[in-house]
Simulated scan of single mutants.
Amino acid sequence: MSFPIKITGVKTVVVNAELRNWIFVKVETDQDGLYGWGEASLNWKTRAVTGTVEDLTPLVLGQDPRDIEHILRILNKHSYYRLGIVGATAISGIEHALWDIFGKSVGLPVWRLIGGRTRDKVRVYTHLGLGDMRSVYETFDEGALRDKALAVVEKGYDALKVVFIPYSGFSVDIPSRRHVGRLMRVLREAVGDRVDIMIDFHGRPASIAAALQFIEELAPYAPMFCEEPVLPGDTEALRLVTERAGCPIASGERLIGFKEFEPLFRQNALHIVQPDLNHTGGILEGKRIAAAAEQAFMGVAPHNPNGPIAGAAALHFDVSTPNFVIQEEMSGAVPWYDDVVSVPMRRTGSYWAVPEAPGLGVEINEAEAAKHPFVQEPFHTQGAVLPDGTIADW
């Protein structure tokens, strides 16, 4: 479409997916039938994000949705106060929808507009439980770990992620370290060497020494990477862990925008960056991060435990990004997933196919979505307490 297009409205649709709320963002235009979908889901911040989208909407009304860089500058610079993770997530959802509109307006998939094809298929991994969040965060038993891992492999995946690092302080007792080693050994023996294993530390170790003690137990079993071994924000600590670890280190899901990633590249602080396109500012900001990562000899493995539109946005990013490594995905997280949303992700084994539909290739059934309204998500952080009662990082 060569004629002007104007944004006429922005709205959110919240869908409760049991242990999290999906926040879908719909950007409407003055062209009949031309609209875009994005996602701005953020754990335990649903009302904050939807309110922020509402607050930002007046800034984009009347703008041409295809002028994405221009609109992003408006949203970031005319907000005056720095927006933080809530604002960046709201902007990400709006930005996804703008790309969806742009692709539909020219009849092309988004990946064609952000660099074109760099691969023929996109490798993905999932978590224990195949989308069941209870399995993701509560598998510390050796037998349950083995069974759930084998169930993932039986579904065709050749890569999976686990979270079995205990809540930790500044030091780690020997039994806790040995238990992590046993869990990793059981897991590797169960799935064999042809399946990649990633271990998410969730930033639980409170010191470099504690992180390295756990990594020492894991490294002999060749993890694909250890994720977020220390809390984000301390680049020097992450660099020291990376230098001493006997395996690849990944991090980045909680960072916002290129500015927060830049020190990691400058200091060679890790091996794989994990921007979340749902939180870091959107697809365009993700491309900037990926380009800088490539110059620093780092791969990109986007974080995404979010909803279906976030997965679609990640798919288009992955197709067009040369230093992409592997994609986290959570498809099928609820039984009615396909009733609410149609998505372009089509999995064969451990790969998504390259989509060809215009835009992001997503459609929401708003009538079905309305059957699953907002519910306060459960806080599964109660166990993040040390034996003496000290609150630990979840």
Results as ranks from 00 to 15, higher is better:
residue 237 A to R: 13
residue 70 H to T: 12
residue 346 R to N: 13
residue 369 A to H: 09
residue 384 A to F: 09
residue 49 V to K: 02
residue 303 H to L: 12
residue 150 L to H: 02
residue 79 S to H: 06
residue 239 R to K: 15
residue 279 H to Y: 08
residue 346 R to G: 03
residue 155 K to C: 08
residue 54 E to W: 14
residue 52 T to I: 00
residue 2 S to Q: 12
residue 312 A to C: 10
residue 78 H to E: 14
residue 338 D to R: 04
residue 155 K to L: 01
residue 240 L to N: 10
residue 149 A to N: 03
residue 352 W to S: 02
residue 164 F to H: 10
residue 80 Y to T: 07
residue 168 S to K: 03
residue 137 Y to Q: 07
residue 306 N to S: 11
residue 319 V to D: 13
residue 205 P to I: 09
residue 380 H to K: 10
residue 215 I to W: 10
residue 23 I to K: 00
residue 45 K to N: 15
residue 345 M to C: 07
residue 50 T to M: 05
residue 376 Q to G: 04
residue 308 P to S: 08
residue 272 I to S: 01
residue 48 A to E: 14
residue 120 D to N: 05
residue 18 E to Y: 02
residue 75 L to Y: 09
residue 163 V to H: 13
residue 262 E to G: 00
residue 118 T to L: 01
residue 255 L to W: 11
residue 219 A to G: 06
residue 52 T to S: 04
residue 124 V to I: 13
residue 207 S to N: 04
residue 166 P to I: 08
residue 250 A to M: 14
residue 263 P to I: 03
residue 144 A to N: 08
residue 261 F to Q: 02
residue 194 R to S: 14
residue 252 G to M: 13
residue 272 I to A: 05
residue 53 V to I: 11
residue 253 E to S: 03
residue 312 A to Y: 06
residue 201 F to E: 14
residue 71 I to V: 03
residue 230 V to D: 05
residue 124 V to L: 09
residue 27 V to G: 02
residue 326 I to N: 06
residue 264 L to T: 00
residue 222 A to D: 15
residue 311 G to Y: 01
residue 211 A to Q: 03
residue 195 V to F: 12
residue 5 I to W: 02
residue 16 N to W: 01
residue 242 T to L: 00
residue 52 T to H: 02
residue 273 V to E: 12
residue 229 P to Y: 12
residue 327 Q to P: 00
residue 186 V to E: 15
residue 55 D to C: 05
residue 71 I to H: 07
residue 268 N to S: 14
residue 71 I to N: 05
residue 70 H to Q: 14
residue 4 P to F: 07
residue 321 T to R: 02
residue 76 N to K: 03
residue 233 G to R: 07
residue 292 A to F: 08
residue 179 H to A: 15
residue 382 Q to W: 11
residue 199 I to C: 11
residue 239 R to S: 15
residue 307 G to D: 10
residue 120 D to G: 02
residue 373 P to R: 04
residue 214 F to E: 06
residue 320 S to H: 08
residue 174 I to E: 14
residue 151 A to T: 02
residue 167 Y to M: 03
residue 132 D to W: 10
residue 312 A to Q: 05
residue 332 G to I: 10
residue 274 Q to I: 02
residue 317 F to I: 02
residue 145 L to Q: 07
residue 364 I to W: 02
residue 74 I to G: 02
residue 138 E to W: 10
residue 197 I to W: 04
residue 240 L to P: 00
residue 50 T to Y: 06
residue 357 A to G: 01
residue 332 G to P: 07
residue 12 T to C: 06
residue 215 I to F: 11
residue 350 S to W: 01
residue 256 I to V: 12
residue 173 D to W: 04
